[in-house]
């Protein structure tokens, strides 16, 4: 018992009394904790006892406390590695395809096109997504089954809803942070990079993936062979 106390000494600290419950809840909810004003206390507490907490989550919950980035872009989250994936399978949640698509879109707009410097006004983002020639047709096709010009009010609301819901989910994950005084204003957090790591293999091999898809399309005329239990619809 004495050993255990030493191993997880952070639990005995005064900081733990004030912060650990919130931190633990956030991490176990899938949230990413980073060095930003709204999470700075949790972040500092976590960073201070990083190794002890890593052991704590590893030994008691069989999950890895991952830390990525440096300085102001550093963030923490609980992750399942190969060892723990089987053990805690029931505690895994999938990032829905809808949210995945918006996440990648957000990264492209923010990181590559650099459309927004800091705060992003949600109606501006919606407007940008709906008017960008590069991808608007794909989006209207996915969420309205129509072209932009033929879109009805319901179609437009569906796209708005998709974007707003995804942003809410990202807020829950700690990938975005909404201004408490203005619910239409948000900031992208460094931890949204997690989406890059999630799809790093696919991103790095995208050229091969496209080639393979094109080959299949040429061979089958666009029809895939449906394997057992593989049908999506």
């Amino acid at each position: 018992m004495e050993d255990a106390n030493k191993k997880y000494g952070f639990l005995e600290t005064e900081e733990a009394e004030n912060l650990f419950a919130d931190l633990d809840f956030a991490l176990k909810s899938g949230q990413h904790v980073q060095n930003y004003p709204h999470q700075v206390e949790l972040f500092n507490f976590l960073e201070k006892y990083e190794e002890e907490m890593r052991l704590y989550y590893r030994n008691l919950f069989k999950v890895n406390l991952a830390g990525k980035g440096t300085d102001y872009t550093r963030y923490f989250y609980l992750d399942m590695d190969d060892e723990s994936r089987g053990i805690v399978k029931s505690r895994a949640k999938k990032l829905s395809p809808e949210y995945t698509l918006l996440g990648i879109l957000l990264l492209k707009i923010h990181r590559i096109d650099k459309y927004f410097i800091n705060d992003i006004y949600v109606p501006d983002l919606i407007q940008l997504i709906k008017s960008n020639d590069e991808y608007k047709n794909f989006i209207y096709n996915l969420f309205a089954k129509r072209r932009e010009k033929e879109a009805t009010e319901i179609d437009e609301s569906t796209i708005d809803e998709w974007i707003r819901n995804a942003l809410k989910e990202f807020e829950r994950l700690g990938w975005t942070h909404f201004d408490p005084r203005n619910k239409d204003l948000f900031e992208i957090m460094p931890s949204i990079d997690r989406l890059f790591s999630m799809y790093s293999y696919e991103i790095h091999n995208i050229d091969r993936l496209i080639d393979e898809t094109n080959t299949i399309t040429e061979k089958t005329g666009g029809l895939y062979a449906v394997e057992e239990g593989d049908a999506q619809d």
Partner: peptide, 25 residues
Amino acid sequence: RTVHEVEVFLPKGMQPKEYYSDRSR
């Protein structure tokens, strides 16, 4: 407002990614 109920599927072979979430407990 009224919206469509839409379910999106990623391209064939592309799986949605998992993250740790023990919220149910």
